[in-house]
Design a protein around this nucleic acid. Structure first.
Lengths: 238, 238
DNA sequence: AGACCGTATTGGTCTAGACCGCTTCAATCG
DNA sequence: CGATTGAAGCGGTCTAGACCAATACGGTCT
């Protein structure tokens, strides 16, 4: 018995969880402790281990629930619409616009979008929900001269991609993509309602427009790994 | 003061760590507890938080050390040699061959490599070190007919890529790439000397050979995130 | 029926104390 | 001088008990 109690309990719970429905509730920490004859902190360590594996989500005052992860698959030819990708995974997407401002481009953005010193960019910050849970913060920066009156065109809950394609006749395609896993900045974490600075999927993508042969937008997203399972799949279409 | 003690301590320690050299040792959990006037478990929770952020590594019986992460950047035109990429990051790579066998291809492999029912594949399992620390398990599967006598050709510590290029006149290029973050299988974890099933970067890549216009190899790697910081960077070279 | 409020439950945090296995390193023995 | 041993120090685990903040729910009051 060199395996710690809490890990044995975690593995036991994991196999039980695999037979349960998503979003169903686990026994409370106290009950688990009594059921398995261990201290509450030991049972808690087991549940924390499951949380670390993204198998459960905990809500203070409410309980621990089997998590319902959605695979967000980024492919070379993926539908450029975020909502579309989520819907394809069988989940319900929703996007909320937090702010829409025209600002001066900071240096790294000027370089990425090939802008001049006093060019301006439109900064669009959106909060994305998956099954009505805050899952992702997306910051999009567009060259302002390419999207005049964007605010008016974005009024109804349309997707940005649709507006770019239909209203502005731009044809965005993915030109750059970067992804890693790191601690989210505290402002991002608090927008998602997360206290302790969490590890998240950080994706940075640039889209260009084929018609004008120039960079169109730069998007950085922070994704909750317990809700979204971001997979980059670059299989070449043959 | 709604912020928990252990998080305040963690943030305090994080800023101290940022001024320290890699691999230097932190105060022990007991000392941290005494220094900051908290219980050892509280100090321990703070150190665990730092470990979760990949900022420190802990060795039982020895201490807690500032981690020394190496960025492993995958780009479209990256040198196909793993060792080369590590060296470019300023670290010291080493590769150890664990096994080299010829086996019958399992279905998913047959499909990936476009093989027939009784074709065989060479399975090469390697353990990769970064600065003499076990960092990655790499399983490579090659179509056996393309690499006759691979064992003899791999004898001296040469890189697989070099052997493929020089001995077999094959010209591998990246044809498929998939990456996510998930719990490592227990056999992988134990090969890396990790007890509790850890979250790792899981990368699956396929290389084809341009000359023969057919799939050449399939590689799956499991990477320790506290040692390797895997970044996928698909910026198009313009 | 709807708005309000208190109470039980849940996870979140913290303390004090204990034992274990492993690593390290100095002291000792051959 | 080299090899072995032992003790000290380290992280890893576990227990018992306690208080807090947030939630959920039932009951009450309007």
């Amino acid at each position: 018995m060199t395996i710690p109690t809490y890990l044995k309990l975690a593995d036991e719970l994991e196999s039980e969880i695999s037979k349960m429905n998503a979003n169903s509730r686990l026994a409370s920490e106290k009950d688990l402790a009594v059921l398995h004859g261990v201290n509450r902190l030991t049972a808690r360590a087991a549940v924390q281990e499951l949380e670390r594996r993204y198998l459960v989500r905990r809500r203070p005052g409410s309980g621990t629930f089997v998590s319902d992860r959605v695979e967000f698959r980024i492919t070379p030819n993926s539908p450029p619409s975020w909502s579309e990708v989520i819907r394809l995974s069988g989940a319900t997407p929703r996007t909320e616009t937090l702010s829409l401002r025209t600002v001066r481009a900071v240096p790294w953005l000027r370089e990425a979008l090939h802008l001049a010193a006093d060019d301006r960019v439109v900064h669009l910050r959106r909060l994305r929900y998956v099954n009505e849970e805050a899952a992702c913060i997306a910051d999009t920066f567009l060259a302002a001269d390419l999207v005049p009156d964007l605010r008016a065109n974005l009024k109804s809950n349309e997707s940005l991609h649709k507006v770019l394609t239909e209203n502005y006749k731009l044809d965005p395609y993915r030109a750059e993509l970067k992804m890693d896993v790191e601690v989210a900045p505290s402002d991002i974490a608090s927008l998602l309602g997360l206290g302790t600075r969490p590890m998240m999927f950080h994706v940075v993508a640039r889209s260009d427009t084929r018609r004008l042969k120039r960079p169109l937008q730069m998007t950085t997203t922070w994704n909750r790994p317990d809700i979204l399972r971001v997979v980059i799949d670059l299989s070449e279409s043959s």
